[in-house]
Amino acid sequence: MQKIAIRVDDLTVAYNYKPVLWDIDLEVPESVLMAIVGPNGAGKSTLIKSILGIIEPIAGSVSIYGKPYDKQRKLVAYVPQKGSVDWDFPTTALDVVMMGTYGRLGWIKRPRSKEKKASLEALEKVGMLPFKGRQISKLSGGQQQRVFLARALVQNASIYFMDEPFQGVDATTEIAIINILKELRKAGKTVIVVHHDLQTVPEYFDWVTFLNVKKIATGPVKDIFNDDNLTKTYGINYKVAVNK
């Protein structure tokens, strides 16, 4: 029996009294590569954000390896949506990756040569070392996403949350990213990805959660990634759209 990495109990989140997530129960076992799929407005990002304590739920609880998130921060890395930050910010690729080391450092302590070395290694891993000194607005969309991935890698976490890492990236970057994610899973890490492209789910992931305000289904891709769940989640017949 696999260990449970993430446990969500009765989680309900509302914006201005309108429920976005409704009574979510979810268990994610350790060492899976999981896609969260669902239509726009299904609460996919919100689910991640409330697990990470960025959004305050109105009910329910979350635990990471049996403890609340704020006791387990160092076990978790997070890649927000690329569009959520200002890429004109005056900073370089290396500097953005260094931000991934801040969590372990805690308040006040500054990154030193050890953190810099780890950040350079992470940049190397995503193939972005030649761009370390480049201002982030001068990077292409795919390169920016790789920098974000490097920032998560440098956190050296056990669980990785990624919010739409494939949005606006070229095909090469998409393959590079998914290969790194697969490596992470092989190394025993748990990876959770908000994903849009249903076609690639069976190819990329081994675990999937269907979400549409409520949880529709969660489990191994080979067991539950079927027309029935897709139709329940998206409300239309998906038989034709997805060929497995």
Binding site: P80, S84, T91, G103
Partner: peptide
Amino acid sequence: LTFFKELKVSTFDVGLSAALGF
């Protein structure tokens, strides 16, 4: 000088800043 790192990360990426505990 004390909070440069924290100010930088919370200005650039609010979500990450919150997730890291700043």
